[in-house]
Simulated assay, not measured.
Amino acid sequence: MATKRNKYILKHGDVIDIEEYHDGNYGAKGKKRTPKKKLTKEDMQKVNAQNKTKKCRQRLLQYFSMGDCFATWTYEPKNRPPNMQEALKDFQKAVEKVRRQYGKRGKQLFWIRNIERGTKGAWHIHLVVNEIGDTASILQKAWNKGGTWFTEIRKSKFYDEDFTKLASYMTKDERTVEIKADGTPAKPRIREASYNISRNMPLPEPATEKLVRWPKEPKPKKGYYIAKMHEGINPVTGFKYRRYTLIRLGQDLEENKNRTQKFRKKRRRKRERI
């Protein structure tokens, strides 16, 4: 059975995100190719949810640091929107105010958001934005529909080094089911959700390797440490997978963010001269 490794170079090499998985299109050595399985609607939903969370996590790694802002905009009952379309308009008006304030300070705004309508009718918007010094004040002034709650990512209950918890939280929707302490599924808490990101956050293409066999437990590359490793069985393919994140030793991701901003400015000036 063929094994593949995808390697994503993030933050100019300070973070390396790696995924290893069996290619279900090929059988084990000496056996015929495995017939391609036709995915059901439920399978496709699982695949799409996995990809959405994966890309969210990688964008968090690429464009944000633990000192950035995790916020929630809430609605007063009298201001609740009648539908998702109106909630999207509310968000667009508010985030445009935030973008203008960032522009006045010579900063670029990066955001990830999830608009959620609860099963009891309450609305709120979860938001991750890059911190520029007075971000909390900017967010409060931009939102007039209710309250604004905010904290640093590192101080939230969704803190972990490879952003798995935060990415899962930011991409949840009406099909997300939490598991209770006794192992049974809880009742859904979201009636509908809308996830989106700012357009200025592209992700690099991975370098792909074909491996002869399933690799042993990885060791950190020289100069890096393994922040976290996840192993399991893909619920759609039924095959093993592994993913882990390498972070350069001695590097603070806040410093890396500042270096990234300097790099973008330098590259932008170079393009302007051409």
Rank of each mutant, 00 (worst) to 15 (best):
R248D: 04
R33Q: 12
A181E: 14
P204L: 12
Q85R: 09
I226K: 07
T171M: 05
V47A: 08
E76L: 15
Y169L: 01
R99G: 02
W143M: 08
R117T: 00
K165M: 08
K180E: 09
K219F: 07
R154E: 12
K262I: 10
G24M: 05
A49I: 01
Y75T: 08
P215S: 12
R213D: 13
C69E: 05
A71M: 02
W214R: 15
N196G: 12
L10Q: 04
V128G: 02
A186M: 10
K262R: 15
A49Y: 13
T148R: 04
R33N: 14
N258V: 03
G223Y: 10
L109S: 04
L139P: 05
T208D: 02
G133I: 06
K7I: 15
L249F: 00
R191C: 02
N51S: 11
D134A: 07
R243S: 10
I274H: 12
I233E: 13
K180D: 10
K41C: 00
G238S: 08
W149L: 15
R273W: 04
G223H: 06
K145P: 00
K240R: 15
P188I: 06
Y8V: 01
P35G: 06
Q85N: 13
G67E: 13
E205L: 15
R100K: 15
L203E: 02
Q108M: 05
